[in-house]
């Protein structure tokens, strides 16, 4: 569904920017902590450049005040950013240990309505060892328990997101029917860790459901990713290609279309963006053409000059090579990513 001058199966690369990830290649001094207006300018700049989405990391509670780069929790920050942007996708990280599935499903469903269908949830399959101690689970989770807990959690959230049919709301003031009761569905989930009746008390998403971005997957998590993820973020470039092929094969085996999952490779572009934009562009082009990924997630500090280097130097080069779509086609994050309904089975 991308531009006609595409050179790889009619597709252009997906581009995301990830703000303040733990492993950011830059340190932001405490004194230079960005306030909301700076973050708003950063995301507006990313939007003006036509990037698909911004990912808002959420520091692991327990990391200590010195590790924080902004004074905001990710979902509340997303809500605020949604009101000062119109097109760009906004994805917030939120932990399956720190939330209850009903509350989290609700928060993101609401963010999706606030942003008119531009919201996504970044769930990680990698457990933060310090987090459980602040959420009344001092004993933590075993690796296996954490995986099963996360998988059940995600299933509940995605089920709740689809509890109202898209045409359930009638708003029939004269007839006195606000919604069609036949089009509201209970979840009635009873599982190992949770039981949740539903339905959600937020309307159906303008983009069908918020986008699910999974990160931190290790080998045993690949089946989960293949079944439920819309976007998968991968770390190690050396094995990313094989992993991407593998997860897409598994997705097809689960009855999903081959385009139903977008695999993005995490990239820390570093300081040579400004000096050697062509080198960065070469590297991205090579990975993209070898089909090891559908695009890239650029890890950046919330510093405008770093984004400027990417947007003003590297992006024009990628665009010149026909690797990046020229503008947003539609309004929702799902459509930016080529994940809109018709590509799902």
């Amino acid at each position: 569904m991308r531009g006609s001058n595409d050179r790889r199966n009619g597709a252009t690369m997906c581009l995301a920017v990830s703000l303040f990830p733990g492993e950011a290649p830059f340190e932001v001094p405490m004194s230079a902590r960005p306030d909301f207006s700076l973050l708003a300018r950063f995301v507006q700049k990313a939007e003006a450049a036509g990037l698909d989405m911004v990912l808002l990391a959420d520091s692991a509670p327990g990391g200590g005040a010195s590790n924080r780069q902004v004074p905001f929790e990710a979902t509340t920050l997303l809500a605020a950013l949604a009101t000062v942007t119109n097109k760009i996708g906004l994805v917030a990280a939120a932990s399956t240990v720190a939330h209850q599935p009903y509350n989290l499903a609700r928060r993101f469903a609401s963010l999706d309505v606030i942003s008119h269908g531009r919201a996504g949830w970044n769930a990680t399959m990698a457990q933060d060892p310090r987090e459980a101690a602040n959420f009344s689970r001092p004993e933590g989770f075993s690796r296996d328990d954490f995986r099963r807990h996360a998988e059940e959690f995600i299933g509940i959230v995605q089920g709740l997101w689809r509890g109202w049919d898209p045409d359930a709301l009638l708003f029939d003031q004269h007839g006195g029917r606000f919604f069609d009761p036949e089009k509201m569905h209970l979840l009635d989930h009873k599982g190992e860790f949770f039981s949740v009746r539903g339905p959600l008390n937020v309307a159906r998403s303008p983009q069908d459901a918020p986008v699910l971005v999974l990160s931190g997957l290790s080998e045993p998590d690949m089946d989960i990713g293949a079944r439920v993820a819309d976007v998968i973020l991968l770390d190690e470039p050396s094995v990313a290609g094989a992993k991407a092929d593998d997860v897409k094969r598994r997705a097809v085996a689960f009855g999903r279309g081959p385009g139903a999952i977008k695999v993005l490779m995490n990239v820390a572009p570093g300081a040579d963006m400004a000096a050697r934009p062509d080198v960065i562009a070469d590297r991205l082009e090579e990975s993209f053409r070898s089909k090891s990924c559908d695009g890239f997630n650029m890890l950046m500090p919330p510093v405008l000059s770093v984004l400027d280097d990417f947007v003003d130097r590297v992006l024009p080069e990628l665009r010149r090579r026909g690797l990046v779509h020229p503008d947003y086609r539609n309004a929702t994050l799902r459509s930016h990513l080529g994940l809109a309904g018709e590509e799902r089975q």
């Binding site: 809500a79 609401s110 309505v113 709301l169 509201m184 937020v202």
Partner: peptide, 15 residues
């Protein structure tokens, strides 16, 4: 039966 979740709503209104 449907509406905004209030914390996300107020975060949007805050700015």
């Amino acid at each position: 039966s449907i509406g905004f979740e209030p914390i996300s709503l107020l975060a949007a209104l805050a700015v």
